[in-house]
Every structure is written in C-alpha cells, then in structure tokens.
Design a protein around this nucleic acid. Sequence first.
DNA 1: ATTAAAATAGTAATGATTCCTGATTTTGAA
DNA 2: TTCAAAATCAGGAATCATTACTATTTTAAT
Lengths: 139, 139
Amino acid sequence: MALKHSRQREMIKEFLMTRTDHPTADIVYMNVRKQHPNISLGTVYRNLTLLADLGEIKRIRVGDGVDHFDADTSPHYHFVCTECGHVTDLQMKNLDELVTLAGANFDGQIAGHVTYFYGICGDCGKAGRDASPAGGAYH
Amino acid sequence: MALKHSRQREMIKEFLMTRTDHPTADIVYMNVRKQHPNISLGTVYRNLTLLADLGEIKRIRVGDGVDHFDADTSPHYHFVCTECGHVTDLQMKNLDELVTLAGANFDGQIAGHVTYFYGICGDCGKAGRDASPAGGAYH
DNA sequence: ATTAAAATAGTAATGATTCCTGATTTTGAA
DNA sequence: TTCAAAATCAGGAATCATTACTATTTTAAT
C-alpha cells in the first residue's frame, strides 16, 4: 500500500520538469530510455498515472486522442496548434467564475471546467507565410 | 467526388436528431441497427465523420476517450457527469470573448476555444443522497 | 540478512477508430 | 429504361494509445 521510491518514477518526473511543452507518454518513454535503456512503456504509463493521481503532475487532454503531461500543476490554460499539434502554455487569468455562471441554470453540482484554445501557433504561422507562393521571402 | 445520397447516412442523422443527449458512435450503431440490421460499424463512423466535416453535426470530445455526437450545431456548452459519464447540454452565454482575452499575450492566431464543465449531474446527486447512510430517506 | 510489499520489464489484451477490398447503390446521361 | 462511373457499403483486418497480466527484481522495514 505504501509508496516506495523508484528510480524510474524519479526519472520520469525529472524529465517532465525539464520540459516547457507537454510531452505524451511516448515522448517521455523515448527520452527517459536514453538514460535508462530498458525501462518499459508500461512503467512510463503507470507512473504518469500515479504521479497525476498524487497531484504531482497534470494530465492534459486536448482532443487529439493522446494524453499530454505537464509538470506545472498551477492552474493555467493551454493552446493546441491545429497545424503541428504542439501544446503550449497560455498566460491568462483564471476563469473559475465560469463555474458559477454555468451553474446558474443547471440541475447538478459543477465541480470545475476545462478550457483550451486552438489555432495556428507562432512558428507555423511564420512557416506558412514563408512558404506561401503569394509573396513570401524565400531564400 | 460529388456527395451521393445514402439511406444509412440519413438514418444516422435522423437518429441523432431524436436525441438530446450526445451518443457515441457505438450507441448510434446499436440503435440504427434496430431498423437496418446489417449496417456496419465502419459505416457509422465514416458517416459521423462525414456529417461532422459537412457541419451538419458536431463532434464532442470531453476527455473520456470516446467521441460523442450532437445534431444541435448551434454554439452551446456541455457538462460531463464524472459519476455516470453522461454528457448533457448547458444553457450559458457564448464565451467567444475568451479568444480575444487569450490572444492578448500570445504569439499566434487563436481560432477558437473548447470549454466544458464537469461534476455530479442532478440524477447522480439525488441517487447519491438517497444511498447515503448519513441521513437519506430510506423507507 | 530476511522478508513482505511494491515496482518493474516484457508482453498480451483491450477498445475506439480507421483502413482495405470486393460487392452494391446511386445518379446522371445516353 | 439502360448503363457506367462514382460513391458508398459490409465485413473484416489493421492501427494506435492505453491497460492488464505475470514472473522477476527492488525497496525498506525488521
């Protein structure tokens, strides 16, 4: 029942903390494997889930069919690029007031909300303009 | 290239329009099969995707690992019960202003936002209180 | 050092969704 | 009406993320 220390879990957490983007389980796996070549994908999944349950990391779902993970557990919002799929942080005031607003005409207890934004990220926007036949700078 | 009429697609759309909840592909499949027993699950998926691409229905993703579908394409928000998993509509003013707010400190083009709420729905709340040892009405 | 609980590696299983293929429907024109 | 091309279908195989299983290894308390 008690939690025991594990080198694998430590490495997963450490790796996540080095990243400002929000890697998927598979990306975590590929990277941790560089230092610990025979870690298994199942171990990565199990520990990501465990850490998320403990509240040490956050699981992020942005509708792309893959779970992303974030070592930053403070409340903040995310942006998903519909072009490259990257998930990035977004500075913005907290919107918990929405829960009150939503609860006004609703029969039930609203515990929280999920909000994320989508569009074209800065990099893809630049690349798109550069590649455009209608007047980008090429070379 | 041109779209051709299909009985299957019609039935799928018709079934969705009878529902105020937001069925998954599998639920659509099981129900349409009552009238058209040898429709295939692949056909249901293909047509749900097609209808969603045409904008005739909406695909809803609420982080439960399954896509839900909604014949009501007008902008509105959803609530997911963490107890029973049901997805229901939620009356609330549109929040497109959030996109402007979010774009303020962001490098990129924000096209839209996804918001949904979660908690305990009215039915589960009632059931929970009824079953509670700490003072429900038993008789 | 001993030992029971927890965690692991490796692999199999699951579940939602997509892809593939040969047969069937639809539709517009002859 | 007849016909052929394009679209769609049914059924099943394949994919992909994730979870479950099991024999072995690691952890940590005695």
